[in-house]
Design a protein around this nucleic acid. Structure first.
Lengths: 210, 210
DNA sequence: ACCTGAACACCGTTCAAGT
DNA sequence: ACCTGAACACCGTTCAAGT
């Protein structure tokens, strides 16, 4: 074929196709040859649009974080409600693409949407009366909790097999295998419980500021 | 050489060597050939001790989680102090081997030390008076926070270069490049602030139980 | 500028062969 | 049982060649 009049690829098409593979078959299923085949081109073509495979996956992670709603930080709402809504939107974006979450480990700093998010949270917290140093911490610790909840799905680890758990070794986990079934439910409950606790605790600290 | 009288390898030696590579050069530097070379054997030898490379890395992750102190759950202390000390020990174990953290994404369920940890937390919370359903959530949400804090080091993302941050795009991040320097400090502060908030919030929920 | 096939150095894993 | 070298199908990436 050689060069067509109109480019066959674009960064956007590549990112979309890569995310499809990640969602359907996991991170490890993404190879440059496979991704290119899905797009109807040959492997090396991708290098006209991204310098490395890692940067493709970076862009995929960025596209997921871009789905997080940040509008609650513009509105007139109080900081607590804004953090609550942001955390839920953030978690929803991540759990919609769970296979991508390990990729967020590299930190959001270099990714533009991660920066935009950090900026929005920090700005809103300062506007609400948090001192800048505290505002930085609030943004970071909320992110820890949300990322951890999407990443480390506590219940996902439990196998749906009673024989997997020796009661002598794990005396309190007799019912652990039941959790596999209700994984999403457990995660959801733990997330909401933790979110409430975190915001309650931050409210106590905010009261003590003056 | 063929088979020696005494085995050259053991699961433990393999895990130790793999962790050294992960710590020094990152997850991606671990290949079966490289790992075997560090151990003075040829690549396929590893398959006498582990069925796959993934299981080697799983064992490495397990060995890190095994460093977490759980003794505070046996003692006579209150649940809040136990959770506080556990969270710090947990975070210390993970931040000592930051490159391993993305691997924890697969969940702790299948790994024996992760199960032992879940069992200890759950048992101690129930003993302290938390209803079982809540005790499960408490264990999970604490894990979210600690894993997230080790994983997503908020500050790590910031590049130590003022030009990296266009003030028009990120109006509140003018000083962001300063964070790179103080990354560990920021993370530490955010972790402690979040930990206090989380425990304060859980204490409020605990009071409302009866 | 943007795509191609060929090529490079590397992977994880299998397996027959050695002791 | 535990190690070896050879081999398989794959990888990310480079590059000269095509339009």
């Amino acid at each position: 074929m050689a060069r067509p009049r109109k480019p066959l690829l674009s960064r956007e098409r590549i990112v979309t196709a890569a995310l499809s593979i990640v969602d359907a078959e996991g991170l490890q299923a993404v190879s440059t040859r496979r991704l290119a085949a899905d797009l109807g081109v040959s492997g090396p073509s991708l290098y006209n649009h991204f310098p490395t495979k890692d940067e493709i996956l970076d862009a995929v992670a960025d596209s997921v974080v871009a789905q997080v709603d940040l509008s609650m930080f513009d509105g007139p709402g109080d900081w607590r409600t804004a953090l609550l809504e942001w955390a839920r939107s953030y978690r929803a974006a991540l759990t919609a693409h769970p296979n991508i979450v390990p990729l967020l480990a590299q930190g959001p700093g270099r990714r533009p949407t991660g920066l935009r998010m950090a900026d929005a949270v920090f700005g809103a917290m300062v506007r609400a009366g948090w001192p800048p140093a505290q505002a930085t911490r609030v943004g970071a610790l909320m992110r820890y909790f949300v990322a951890g909840s999407a990443l480390g799905s506590f219940a996902r680890g439990f196998v749906d097999d009673p024989d997997a758990y020796d009661p002598a070794a794990y005396p309190h986990l007799g019912q652990a295998h039941l959790l596999a079934d209700r994984q999403e439910h457990v995660d959801q409950g733990a997330f909401e419980t933790g979110l409430t606790a975190l915001l309650d605790g931050l409210a106590l600290q905010f009261e003590r500021l003056d």
